[in-house]
Simulated assay, not measured.
Amino acid sequence: MPVTVTRTTITTTSSSTVVGSPRALTQPLGLLRLLQLVSTCVAFSLVASVGAYTGPMGHWAMFTWCFCFAVTLIVLVVELAGLQAHFPLSWRNFPITYACYAALFCLTSSIIYPTTYVQFMSHGRSRDHAIAATTFSCVACLAYATEVAWTRARPGEVTGYMATVPGLLKVLETFVACVIFVFISDPYLYQRAPALEWCVAVYSICFILAAVAILLNLGECTGVLPFPFPSFLSGLALLSVLMYASALVLWPLYHFNEKYGGQPRRAWDSGCGSRHTHIVCTWDRKLAVAVLTGINLLAYLADLAHSARLVFVKV
């Protein structure tokens, strides 16, 4: 049974586009999605034409732009054909969930691709294409972020959970966890101490629980839980805050404190001395995980505060 949210009064959510008709493309949201489609298409086309996506960072950027282009195309086709009722996921929740993920994907690509790849390229046609692709990636990021701001829940509206602040925070929490998993993909970063293995367990458990909350809403299956869905959300937020707080203490302590075998200075990591195009050195990975842990802790704190204030109405 789907869950909707209201703060004070229940009103009818206005339609942002005229669906099932070519007129949908002339509406503001339709034009915004066309901009997303074009900008991601141009970005991966520019890079693919000169093969400027070697290494993991280049592959990440290429995957981001291709994935966003493909899913945005699906969203446009579904709306133009009026197939929302036949879509396997909740159309109240899916478009804004995807737009939020796409904005975060394009944001990371717009930062990582130029800093870890483009700046090491020699001047020429390939570098010019890569710079232009980065520009279009930034445009796509702004377009997706604008859609999120445009379609998020307003006070007094009845809408899907994923359009609310806690729903959008769930997207941020899972995305940040995925980036953490990328940085800790090498087991030697956490296998030397049980405390570090606990940190990895924290990232994994919290990610799984947040992903379950998102999937339950996308599948409109919140009623299958043996307890009220709002209680699940509040408990999830509280548990995640406590677990991430422990990880925020333990991860830096064991990686940057000499007493626990850490390296407090970047210069002590020999791998950070070489300016390699496609590699992020170990010390930088550890620091990135520490920063991302703090970001996710703040996200879960905000999630807990908002979840405690929301009133859920089953319809």
Rank of each mutant, 00 (worst) to 15 (best):
A103L: 01
S122T: 13
T135S: 11
R154S: 09
Y161Q: 06
A177E: 06
Y98I: 07
A153Q: 12
G156H: 03
F175N: 04
I131T: 12
A133F: 06
Y117S: 06
V148I: 10
A177F: 08
W150N: 02
P166F: 02
G167F: 01
A153C: 06
I131Y: 11
L107I: 07
L172A: 14
S110M: 06
Y98H: 09
T164Y: 02
E173G: 10
T115D: 05
M162F: 01
Y117D: 12
G160S: 02
A132I: 03
V118E: 04
V118N: 05
V148R: 00
K170P: 08
E157S: 00
A130W: 03
S109T: 15
Y161L: 09
V171L: 07
Y144N: 06
S109L: 08
Q119F: 12
A143Y: 12
A103S: 15
F105G: 03
E173F: 05
M162Q: 06
S137M: 14
C106G: 04
S110W: 11
I131E: 10
F136P: 00
M162H: 02
S109M: 13
R127S: 11
L168K: 06
A103Y: 01
Y113E: 08
E173K: 05
V165T: 14
T115L: 15
F175I: 09
Y101C: 03
Y113W: 05
T159H: 02
F105I: 04
A163F: 00
T134R: 05
V179A: 10
A163R: 10
V158E: 14
P166A: 01
Y144F: 15
A177G: 12
E173Q: 15
C138M: 14
G156T: 01
T164R: 00
F136V: 13
A102G: 01
Y161D: 08
T159L: 01
Q119R: 15
H123C: 07
F175V: 08
S137V: 13
L168E: 11
V158M: 09
V171F: 03
T97F: 15
T108N: 12
A132D: 09
V176N: 11
E157H: 00
P114M: 01
L169K: 03
L172H: 10
Q119T: 13
F175A: 03
C141L: 10
D128I: 07
R125Q: 07
A133T: 06
T164I: 01
A132H: 07
K170S: 11
I180V: 14
T135N: 07
V171H: 01
P114R: 02
S110A: 14
T108G: 08
G124N: 09
A140N: 11
S110C: 10
P166D: 00
T116V: 06
M121L: 15
A99N: 09
I180K: 04
F105L: 13
K170Q: 12
V139L: 15
V139I: 15
G160W: 00
I180D: 09
T146H: 02
C106H: 11
G167V: 02
T116L: 14
Y113D: 05
